[in-house]
Amino acid sequence: MTGLRLEGLTARYGDHAAVAGLDLAVAPGERLALLGPSGCGKTTTLRMIAGLLAPAAGRVLMDGADVTRHPPERRQAVLVFQSGMLFPSMSVEQNVAFGLRMRGVPRAARRDRARAMLARVRLDGLADRRPADLSGGQAQRVALARALVLEPRLLLLDEPLSSLDAGLRDEMRELVLALQRESGVTTIMVTHDQAEAVAMADRIALMLDGRLRQVGPPEALWHRPADAQVARFFGGVNFWPGRGDGTRFDCALGPVPCAAEGPGLLTIRPEAVRLDAAGPGALPARETGRRFLGAVTRLRLVVGADGGEVIADSPAPPETITQVTLPRAALHLLPPP
């Protein structure tokens, strides 16, 4: 198992820094998600790790050894593209065996290993097919098999699920996770979908505008975002500027009981807002709108005399709402904007 470290990694397109001084360490065997909106530099970073793009500055280290100047074929960091990128003139089996062939593995051995790998991605019967005859999900699995058969030091996945439809996506996610656990390969995946990152990664590195904004386990980014932008990326909608004195926080909602101290932006996840209990610290509220979203209903509520708005998600909201409770443990103070 291989560890990866990026030091001051920088990529430029013209004057624009697509990736600006990225520092990141990935532990051996870890699954890390590089998460961010399109254009944030995450795919550029993945290409630099794979050796397909030369960084303008900075270093890529694998197990402590500098590989920044190594060509891609010497890194054993295999990139799996979003679209599968199967070689159209080769059969499925030849595709899977391609990397072994490049390593000089004899024909019979690479055939056996390719077939065994195809069985593990449950494509046993398709070895002789042409890529053009495969479905999107099958092509993606062939691409995964083609990478894993090499037992690479790093597995780099570019948006592994986003080209698949919902049903296939769950199946593919479980398959990727099972294969990763089996092989223990250090995996870095790039995705713009926070749900995908949360479900698949041990740790998430959130990138915005070419910079790392927060790195940590999914729970930390979800419950304890570093700033409002990170919170928004994970679906945060409640932000109240104000000032706390250690027992209560003064903002548009009025005084909110909580331990926050100093100026900042108070936030709570919409699903953490409670509508039922009339416990201590309940605030009078008036409903101004509701929208059914499937698993939950989203409610817009006006709280306090200054017209502060609270957005709450509830699986089964009561007919009439007269108060809300913001549980102290769920409240989180962000730095002032």
Binding site: G51, L52, P72, E73, Q76, F87, F98, M102, R103
Partner: peptide, 27 residues
Amino acid sequence: LDPDLEAQARSLGARPAAVLRHVTLPA
């Protein structure tokens, strides 16, 4: 011809000459 097809071959361990022979020329 998608340039990523050649990048994919490199990533799978093919030297530039092998990429030309096995991927680019057939395409």
